[in-house]
Structures are given as C-alpha cells and as structure tokens.
C-alpha cells in the first residue's frame, strides 16, 4: 500500500467580502499518495487556486478556511492538521515540507534582492547550514533546475533573468529543503510554449529525483495529460470528477469533463470538426446553486440535479464522479455510457 502524503477532508473556504460570502471552495475531499502527480483542472473561478492556498494555509484576509481538515502525513508517519496550526508553526512546514510555486514568475521574485539572497534566506530558514554552505547548496540547486551558469548567475537580480529562468529559480528555491509535497499553481501559464514544455519536463524529473508528490493546478488539460498521474476536475468550488489520468481522458463520466474535452482544439484531429463550447457561464459563488453547480449548463440535467448536489459515485477504485447520472435509476445517455449495456 502506498504511503499517503496529504488528505483533504471536507474543506470549505470562503471570502467574506462587502457583497457577502463568496464560497470559493464548497467542501472538497481528496488524498494524495507518495510519488503521485495530481492535476487539478478547472476554469477560472472553479476554486482550484483557493484549494491550493488552503492547503498551504495561505488564504488571505478576508478569506478563511471555514470547515474541514488538511492532514499532512510526515515522513515518519506523524499526521498534522494544517488548519489547526498557528501561523508561526505553519511557517516551519511552508518551504520545508510543503512548497509552492506560482503562476507569474515575472512578479514572484522580489526585485530588490539577488537570487542568491532570496534562495539562501529560505535554505537558512529551514536548515542549520551556514551562509557559505547555503550558497553552495543554492548553486547546486540552480544547476539541478537547469540554470546554465549557476556560479556566475546566482548573484544576479531577478530582472536579469528571463521568465523561464525565473520560474526555474523559483522551483529551485521551492525544492531547496526537499519538500514532500510541491504545489504548482499554474506554473507554466505565463510562459511561452517551448519554455512550458521544459518546465513541465523539469517538474517530472525533479519529482523522481527527490521523490516528492506534486499538485499541479492548471486550466490546461494538455498540461495535465503531459505530467499527471491523477486528475481532479473542479467546477463551482466542488469536485466533479476524479480519477487516474487515463480514466479522465479516455473514460470521462461527468458531463462537464466530457464538455471540457469537446471544447479543446486538437491539431491532430480533423481540422474541419467544429469545437463544441459549453454553453452558459460558471455559477455565481456569492449565491451558488443548491444542486449540482453544473446543472444550469448541463445538457443532461434532471430535476434532482437542481435540488441536490450529487454524492461521489464510485466508478472504479480510483474514479469517482459527482453526477446523478451515475445513480442506478438514472437514464444512461449514450455519449456518456458508450460501452455500457
């Protein structure tokens, strides 16, 4: 049996704004095992970024984790609930056991300090290395993430680095203390396509080298297909479907997942084929629908869908789908149950 790294149980995160409570994450459960790369995919406002910030316990005012547990399994089997830690205690885990990289490498490094300064600050924060040792460590990390001349470039300032190099430096900093879990929030969105591929390769390589688990947040199904072992599809602050990458790409069961697949342009496919957009727009999280959040846009919506959100129906050991169509009494539309009798 694989060792667990993270269990997220019933987490709800809301932002208390002037307009009212914005329910960004509305009760999600998942777990992550050692060595897995979990992709979380969803459109803007689906709650994927807030989920990642919640795991780091970094949700800023006026946001707040209202309910649920985030259980982190340490190397020695000790389990801590991040939601119950003080920020001082939590800081000992951040950057050390759990690290995070963000979407925009151009603005994620402090412009007024050198790369070296920012890296050794983190290394010295979590280890007992002295300054010289920390610098050596930082150089070898930069080498590991593919910065061509660490010796010469470590004293550079962020503005002297290109976007791809900055993301590499940020990754180097994030893995500096050999984290058990790395959360990458849209790590390639702000980069051009060739650099994107390099960064994804790098993440895959590092995952093996230091045996960490990765949670990869993205809106790009292509990125997920490239690197993930498991996938969670989020919509309206809830999990719609989760499974292995194979299940999500070849045997999707949720109408939303299927809709996502139909709306991706595929260069290999027949060019003449029209893309099928998902009609409508995402739910208003200030006043989320009582039932399934996707029901207003769902071509198969039934009465029950509008009244009550579906539980997670188990399709296989790994694949779970939150859709009433999976209920035994529900009709079985052909597009969804291709092989089914």
């Amino acid at each position: 049996m694989k060792k667990k790294v993270l269990e997220v149980k019933g987490v709800k995160t809301s932002f208390f704004t002037h307009l009212g409570e914005v329910q960004a994450v509305r009760g999600i459960d998942f777990e992550l095992n050692e060595g897995e790369i979990l992709g979380i995919v969803g459109e803007s406002g689906s709650g994927k970024s807030v989920t990642s910030l919640s795991i780091m316990n970094l949700v800023d005012h006026p946001g707040e984790i209202k309910e649920g547990q985030i259980l982190f399994h340490e190397e020695d089997g000790n389990i801590v609930d991040f939601t119950s830690l003080s920020s001082r205690k939590m800081n000992e885990y951040r950057g050390n056991d759990v690290a995070m990289i963000f979407q925009d490498p151009m603005t994620s490094l402090n412009p007024v300090y050198s790369i070296q300064n920012q890296m050794i600050e983190v290394i010295q924060r979590h280890t007992d290395l002295n300054k010289q040792e920390a610098i050596e460590r930082a150089k070898s990390l930069l080498e590991q993430v593919g910065i061509p001349d660490p010796e010469g470039q470590i004293t550079d300032y962020p503005h002297q680095f290109s976007g791809g190099m900055r993301q590499r430096a940020l990754i180097a900093t994030a893995i500096s203390c050999n984290p058990r879990l790395l959360i990458a929030d849209e790590p390639t969105t702000a980069l051009d396509v060739t650099i994107q591929a390099q960064i994804l390769e790098l993440l895959k390589k590092l995952q093996k080298e230091i045996n960490m688990s990765i949670i990869l947040i993205t809106h790009d199904l292509g990125v997920i297909a490239e690197v993930s072992t498991h996938v969670i599809v989020m919509y309206g602050g809830m999990i719609m479907e989760k499974g292995t990458v194979h299940e999500i790409f070849y045997e999707p069961k949720h109408p939303y997942t299927i809709g996502l697949h139909q709306s991706i342009p595929q260069s290999a496919k027949k060019q003449k084929e029209r893309l099928v957009p998902i009609e409508g727009s995402p739910p208003d999280l200030l006043d989320p629908p009582t039932g399934c959040p996707f029901s207003p846009r769902c071509p198969h919506a039934m009465e029950v869908c509008l009244e009550k959100a579906a539980p997670l129906f188990e399709v296989s050991d790994s694949q779970k789908v939150s859709c009433w169509l999976l209920h035994e009494d529900a009709p079985k539309p052909k597009e969804i149950f291709k092989g089914a009798k």
Binding site: N91, G95, T107
Partner: peptide, 21 residues
C-alpha cells in the same frame, strides 16, 4: 505583490516578510 506571497509560501517569518521583503 506576488513576491510577498512567495516569501510567505517559503515559510519566511512575518517580521522578515514585512521588514525585509
């Protein structure tokens, strides 16, 4: 700014986040 969030995500103490970064 994003770099302040990065510093926090790296476990830098709040005091250092404010006075250094």
């Amino acid at each position: 700014q994003d770099y302040v969030r990065t510093a926090r995500a790296n476990g830098i103490s709040e005091r250092k986040v404010i006075f250094k970064h």
